[in-house]
């Protein structure tokens, strides 16, 4: 097991956002976290990325228990837990190449070349536009850059927050293909997605969240075939 979370609780001030959540992420899996707006998916991801402190619970990563107090993003990135935040959030006035360099921030320079090759192979479009300001890229290209930038940190666990947000169906399909490709290369992916059907179609396993609780879990196929889940929690027919 790559990541094991037990009884995790996160608060925004007095607001209890994540309630006793437990989940497992196996090596080289795509695990999808799905749920409607305000279910706590992004909060859970941010907690695991060290952007929001967890108040209680247990997080075991590669057989090592992470102390909650020490879960800070810079330390987690060094350990190989990297998040591509929601809304792409590329650095608009840095070039594509400098954006990618920012992703490799915690790693020694001599290791950058392999990561650059990997990212440019996955996203040839970024190679073509390496000197261009990231803010001038199209939405899809920015999403590729956001994922590419996260890959530059050589993650063992890549956490993607809403990668299909604001993309056309065609581009969404392309992004999910790429996500599978990244998994096939050996990177484990924890995926938060509103587009539940697309996410569950590529996921090995999934967790359905509702108001900060896990209400259902199973393989992607199981969750996808349960019309009850799709209707009750995800608002699809």
């Amino acid at each position: 097991m790559l990541l094991k979370v037990e009884g995790l609780n996160t608060f925004y001030g007095n607001l209890h956002a994540i309630w006793d959540i437990s989940l497992d992420v196996g090596e080289k899996e795509i695990v999808a976290l799905i749920g409607s707006n305000g279910a706590g998916k992004s909060t859970l991801l941010k907690t695991l990325a060290g952007c929001i402190p967890a108040r209680s619970g247990r997080v075991v990563y590669r057989d090592e228990e992470l102390r909650l107090r020490h879960m800070r993003s810079d330390r987690l990135v060094k350990k190989g837990i990297v998040m591509a935040p929601e809304g792409r959030r590329v650095f608009p006035r840095l070039t594509v190449e400098n954006n990618l360099k920012m992703g490799a921030y915690t790693r020694p320079k001599k290791e950058w070349t392999d990561s650059f090759t990997r990212v440019y192979d996955l996203f040839p479009r970024l190679a073509e536009r390496r000197g261009q300001m990231a803010g001038t890229l199209s939405g899809g290209e920015q999403q590729m850059l956001a994922i590419g930038r996260a890959l530059m940190g050589d993650p063992k666990l890549l956490m993607l927050d809403e990668p299909s947000l604001g993309l056309s169906p065609l581009l969404t399909e392309k992004i999910f293909e790429l996500i599978q490709q990244i998994r096939d290369q050996g990177t484990t992916i924890l995926l938060v997605e509103q587009n539940a059907v697309a996410a569950l179609a590529v996921a090995n396993r999934g967790y359905v969240l509702k108001v900060g609780h896990v209400v259902q879990s199973g393989t992607g196929r199981e969750l996808l075939s349960s019309t009850e889940i799709l209707r009750s929690y995800l608002g699809t027919q």
Binding site: D74, M83, P85, F91, R93, L94, M102
Partner: peptide, 23 residues
């Protein structure tokens, strides 16, 4: 320098910079 690039990244987007592991 790398430090300068970090500062520019922080100006552009603090959250993104944080997720890159920048303190």
């Amino acid at each position: 320098s790398r430090f300068g690039r970090n500062l520019r990244a922080i100006k552009e987007d603090e959250t993104a910079a944080e997720t890159m592991g920048i303190r």
